[in-house]
Design a protein around this nucleic acid. Structure first.
Lengths: 141, 141
DNA sequence: TATTGTTATACTCTATAACTATA
DNA sequence: TATAGTTATAGAGTATAACAATA
């Protein structure tokens, strides 16, 4: 009979909870949590902005969940919604200058928060973990 | 600037979500979700029952969250709360015969649900993932 | 007809605080 | 005084369904 402590799904859930909690605590200094932080990062990385549909797909969320996340970031002036020139249904979410500024500090904080637990692994082990998780997460192309 | 797709915390959160969702879907056949299933497994594995405090610690939950989980399993006759002979404050949660019966089928279902995603990794890779996650999760002894 | 974003709703999960009974 | 379990509550996360505007 397999023990719960050996169940990878259980371990994933526990590890995710611990790391997300620590990262949320670190990000509190800039008034962000993991979810809005992720949206900000994607808005920064995509030149010209990213559609809410693509945001949802990348984050593994339903498009309806993205609305409130973008609303909050827009309210704080960190991102802007601009209509796509190509398709008037689509709104491109792009980071403002203020958003890009905050992102740098937030990324530092998120990194140190995550390393509270992940720092138990060597850099090589972290790379292995990253590769394995990527294959679990990625779309079967 | 590190990309979100390389962030281990982000990958953990995505992988956990995908695997837990698939496992919940599989467990629906026996009317369980991951959380109550985990409680049932621990109640089965500990001869004589496990205290709610130990349940909470093992699952990484607050003791107050354990109450409703045990309530529901007890209502369905899968576990029983019995007062500890040693300490009348403590209640030992033990699986009933019916609980043990269900556990076998549930473990099968949970395994196949989890493997929908985790099956992309070889058994050796899964063992590596399990070891790395265990070190992230474990108490620093 | 199908897609993007949106609103609404319900349920699960997470986080705290306070209470009781025992120790 | 501290601990095990419980109750209550609020906030965050998840899951669906339906709708308006646009393609």
């Amino acid at each position: 009979m397999p023990a719960l402590a050996d169940d990878i799904g259980f371990l994933l859930s526990r590890a995710s909870g611990l790391v997300v909690r620590a990262t949320n605590d670190s990000l509190a200094e800039v008034g962000l949590r993991v979810r809005p932080y992720s949206v900000l990062v994607l808005a920064c990385d995509e030149e010209g902005g990213i559609s809410q549909r693509d945001l949802a797909a990348t984050l593994g969320l339903d498009p309806s969940q993205v609305v409130a996340l973008v609303d909050e970031l827009a309210r704080r002036g960190l991102v802007e919604r601009t209509p796509s020139p190509a398709d008037r249904r689509t709104k491109l979410v792009a980071a403002t200058a203020r958003g890009r500024e905050l992102r740098d500090r937030a990324t530092e904080l998120a990194g140190s928060g995550g390393q509270q637990r992940l720092g138990r692994l060597t850099p090589a082990e972290q790379a292995t973990l990253r590769d394995l998780l990527t294959r679990v997460v990625d779309d079967p192309a």
